[in-house]
Design a protein around this nucleic acid. Structure first.
Lengths: 333, 333
DNA sequence: AAGGTTGTTGGGAACGTTCCCAAAAATATT
DNA sequence: AATATTTTTGGGAACGTTCCCAACAACCTT
């Protein structure tokens, strides 16, 4: 079939042991000549190591599984790309899995991970209990903004800071009545409440009370962005700026605005969150706060590699979002 | 360490041979009782098969490598998703690789594929020679619109038909002067020329000559879309409709239009290609011809599986694009 | 009841590595 | 020159499966 280490050994006139020593660069205690001969023979024969055999023997596969909700979502695609780039560079191969937010699929993929003896797993899996994750035979790095401390490292965005910087930006542009659209649905990881808290905290720091009528919870979809535009347009005393839970909502809002008698940013300023590709394509181009998506993937990958190599790692890494100024926020007097 | 088939065998009081027989459902010639006992023991012990060992023994890993240019590009993300879904459902795991259009990376990944003994490879790799691909120890399915016949199956879009349907659509909306923006750059796979041919052919079928001044070649980016808008706005006798090489160009065009004295679709109709997510988010929402991205991934996966299982497969599968009517094409008299 | 047939079973080798251990060769020490 | 030390080497077992082959049991035949 394919050329094995034994073929290489024979061709270079040494035993498979020595051949293995040089080919797995575990090799100190091998003569220069032997080294050269083996390497030469390997190259000549086009030897490629069978990683299955290596993995079986060493239980070290140089393989990692990435479990994300949906690769089709640009956020996760960026995360995946970031992770892939560093794994690739470090000689690891990446398995990909889309969970579609279904706990049973997440679980099944973890079995795949065990079966394939991966060295580590990166995942976003809000639905899987910690107990289950802790008993796995490989290190885990979680992708998300989890608040609670868990046994494995988590890397995500510093949402609290992101919100407060976005608010500060709007404030600095002269906005005082700032509305907010929060994600509804099951209170996973306390993500909604951390946003709300940051919002409240911001106003408190400015010596203002929060006006609860400026806040609404809704699923973060295009459609609900449109709906909110209609609602807000009809408001007697509408906010001067709006911070939406993600870019999709903001884009939906924008779409509805062109039909309505609402102009952005003249009548209302709009700020999104995530910086999806479309954010720079709609018009006016959407001002938003970009999560460091690719950076999240990269950091998670680095942490995973550290963990694989037996080093310790930070329990929680929260990366900073940054504001992308475009055309949907205007300065008011 | 983990529980092996021998543990299961012991626990159920049979030999590893019988245990293997039932656990690898190669099992006819094993008593009902033994079957039940083994299954029961396996479940009780939480046995998960070591696929490395299986792979080493059988050289069948139930593993596939997908090499695409960039997962961050929604087109490829969709293809990946489609492939993943069917592989997943058929019990295959998917390795992901981003080549960034670099031939050396493509080659390196092929080595990874060999080293990991994958069962098949799906790739888009215009730069890799056929000779290299043909000598690989696993079936290959190529993703792309290749014209020439090659030794392995190709699945892609029927570009010719897509163009001619798009033209027909514009024609049916009353347009007669239809401009086209073609991809420039190295004439890979003859993709540009097939588009041009379809364009020419269409006019010929309508008994018209093509007006070469309506055609331009340019890299398919946002920026060149903007540039083209400026150029076309200044044209003395501008086309009534424009078919762009992809949605990105169309969106760039659209962006520039809002500053210019050019209204879409009132002054000029616009039709994109690909149906990227942003196409439905810009305003006016972009009419476009959608390639069956996810379907391409699925089909390629099915073909790969057929190939793995020793069945024959169609040499070339060209899937149909379909027109998504939105708001950038208007009917003229 | 002896032989034949079918159905079930277990032992052992194999897949391609790595790694332990002991042997051999080279070098240093007295 | 003999011994001690270090360096380099090769044989064989092991990783967890599958699969070939032979052995055994059970059931039919006649």
């Amino acid at each position: 079939m394919s050329v094995t280490i034994i073929d290489v050994a024979k061709a270079s006139g040494v035993s498979k042991s020595t051949a293995s020593r040089v080919l797995s660069n575990t090799a100190y205690g091998v003569s220069e000549k032997a080294k050269r001969d083996v390497l030469e023979a390997a190259r000549a024969l086009g030897y490629i190591k069978n990683t299955l055999a290596t993995g079986l023997r060493t239980s070290h596969t140089h393989t990692v599984l990435l479990i994300i909700p949906d690769i089709t979502n640009s956020f996760w695609a960026e995360v995946a790309r970031g992770a892939q780039d560093v794994f690739d560079q470090k000689g690891y191969s990446l398995f990909l899995a889309n969970s579609d937010w279904q706990a049973d699929r997440e679980k099944r993929y973890l079995e795949v991970a065990i079966a394939n003896k991966v060295d580590a797993v990166l995942l976003n899996a809000p639905d899987i209990g910690q107990i289950q994750l802790d008993s796995l035979p490989f290190p885990i790095v979680e992708l998300g903004d989890k608040l609670v401390d868990v046994a494995h490292p988590v890397v995500g965005t510093d949402t609290r800071k992101a919100i407060s910087e976005a608010m500060e930006y709007l404030w600095s542009m002269g906005h005082r009545r700032i509305g907010m659209i929060l994600p509804s649905g099951p209170e996973i990881e306390g993500v909604t409440s951390i946003r709300y808290k940051a919002y409240e905290e911001f106003f408190r720091s400015k010596g203002q009370d929060v006006d609860k009528s400026l806040i609404c919870k809704t699923p973060l979809t295009l459609e609900s962005g449109r709906l909110q535009a209609h609602r807000i347009a009809a408001l007697p005393d509408r906010p001067s700026a709006l911070l939406t839970g993600n870019d999709l909502v903001a884009v939906g809002f924008l779409q509805a605005c062109s039909q309505l008698h609402l102009k952005v940013p003249e009548d209302i300023s709009l700020m999104g969150m995530d910086d999806i590709p479309a954010a720079s394509m709609v018009s006016p181009r959407l001002t938003t706060v970009a999560k460091p998506q690719r950076e999240i993937g990269k950091t998670a990958a680095h942490i995973a590699i550290d963990l694989i190599e037996g080093m310790t790692s930070p329990a929680k890494t929260l990366l900073e979002a940054n504001i992308i100024e475009r055309e949907t926020v205007r300065r008011v007097l």
